[in-house]
Design a protein around this nucleic acid. Structure first.
Lengths: 237, 237
DNA sequence: AGTTTGTGTGTCCTACGGATACTGTATCCG
DNA sequence: CGGATACAGTATCCGTAGGACACACAAACT
């Protein structure tokens, strides 16, 4: 029910029962079923009833394995993101590793588009998620950053990545229904007579390039590199 | 019910009724009551019933003014963030203006800590929110960025700000209950025998400084400035 | 006047997360 | 070997949610 129990579940610290009937299924099955639902119908479609129905059992049987909906979400995330990558052999220095980390995370999200949304905020994290964070952390270790700045660099990078995903991977957005939301907004703004020069300037002309992924990332990496140079320590490669 | 109606509500395009009884209250009252609830008990405590109870009316009467819960959320956000600032007289060039924009946004969020969480994802936006975006957009206009990069810079900045808020403003987090979550995690990891060098390295020693706001922001601004210099256009001040 | 249009209420429905009590089953201990 | 024990899956019930619908009443226009 609490964070404690969920954490123990995530980290495999639950003692296996010795007596009683054999379990017909387990946490892994629950998580798998839930992830399938989330992948196809969105995370909003994941309910205890739906998951149980997919497994062929009743809703309440799930509570034998996942103490709560929050715990279910947690094991879903663990299953979805999977084992963290090993970046130690990636070439291109810390910049190359950071880029690779983003690529891999992105690919994972492409398979499970609900994950970036589900991983906001404070919550119990499992070994896979910690592993991913550590992979990023290792990338920024021993390049000349202070301890605090290292943590901040990881937060900066991963946060940016999550922000960009929802916007850029617009294909997974549910507004396939004829009207684009920015068009609607433009129409309404025109009707109210509101106009902003800087906005018009941006909107005018040819539509913007679809590849809007690299700018933010490269700016962040540039900023970190510049910081290293100013601190007088960093070896860029 | 749809985005269209919500947009018209937000932008004041609803025609005022000519006949019928006088309305005992209005959208403004609904939004105000809802914001009060969210401020004190969190956005999760905002339900139609609760808002109606605070106003002294029944739940269903609210639907006369806000087509849905999503629309209620939208007007709440508009009320909470308020009128956008005018940064044109802020000194320090675009960097100073960007910093100021972040400060002001941060202050707003301190008054309404649920806002950063509520403003993720695609949704109908009102004039205040557009105004805030435009203020940031104007800051990055005519400093040497391409149209696309200008938009990306705003997204980078505002996204980073929202990411940092939830982490840094931990005072508003609901884990006042004796145990700190990172302690719990450390304990569980110790019990499983898992250990990561780069993680240990960061955790070891004195606790990190509480001021973790500036690093990411300054790295982003540095990255943008470096980009301007490389493009050969930017006037830094 | 009466019609039209709008306001706030009461009732009902569906879906959700979850508590509790129960029946049945596998294992351990005497 | 047989009862006690611990566990598995089910059935029932509850509170809270968002929201549809139909009503009784009130103000304005004709």
């Amino acid at each position: 029910m609490g964070r404690q129990e969920t954490l123990e579940l995530l980290w495999g610290l639950r003692a296996a029962p010795k007596r009683g009937p054999k379990a017909a299924f387990g946490v892994a099955d629950v998580a798998a079923a839930a992830v399938e639902i989330a992948d196809s119908d969105g995370v909003g479609a994941v309910s205890m009833e739906q998951v149980a129905a997919r497994l062929g059992y009743t809703k309440m049987s799930l509570y034998r394995y996942v103490d709560s909906k929050a715990a279910l979400l947690a094991v879903m995330i663990e299953l979805a993101i999977g084992e963290p990558p090993d970046l130690s052999r990636v070439r291109g220095g810390w910049r190359g590793q950071a880029r690779r980390w983003c690529e891999l995370m992105w690919q994972t999200w492409d398979r499970h588009p609900w994950v970036p949304h589900a991983t906001v905020g404070e919550r119990p994290v499992g070994p896979n998620e910690v592993g991913w964070s550590v992979a990023a952390l290792t990338t920024f270790t021993d390049i000349g950053l202070s301890r605090g700045d290292t943590v901040d660099a990881v937060a900066l990078l991963s946060g940016h990545l999550r922000n960009t995903y929802a916007v850029t991977a617009a294909g997974s957005q549910p507004w396939t229904d004829q009207v684009r939301p920015d068009e609607e907004l433009r129409d309404v703004m025109a009707r109210t007579g509101v106009s902003y020069p800087s906005l018009d300037q941006v909107v005018a002309g040819r539509p913007l390039s679809a590849d809007r992924r690299s700018f933010g990332l490269e700016r962040i990496l540039d900023g970190i590199e510049l910081h290293l140079q100013r601190e007088g320590v960093g070896a860029s490669v």
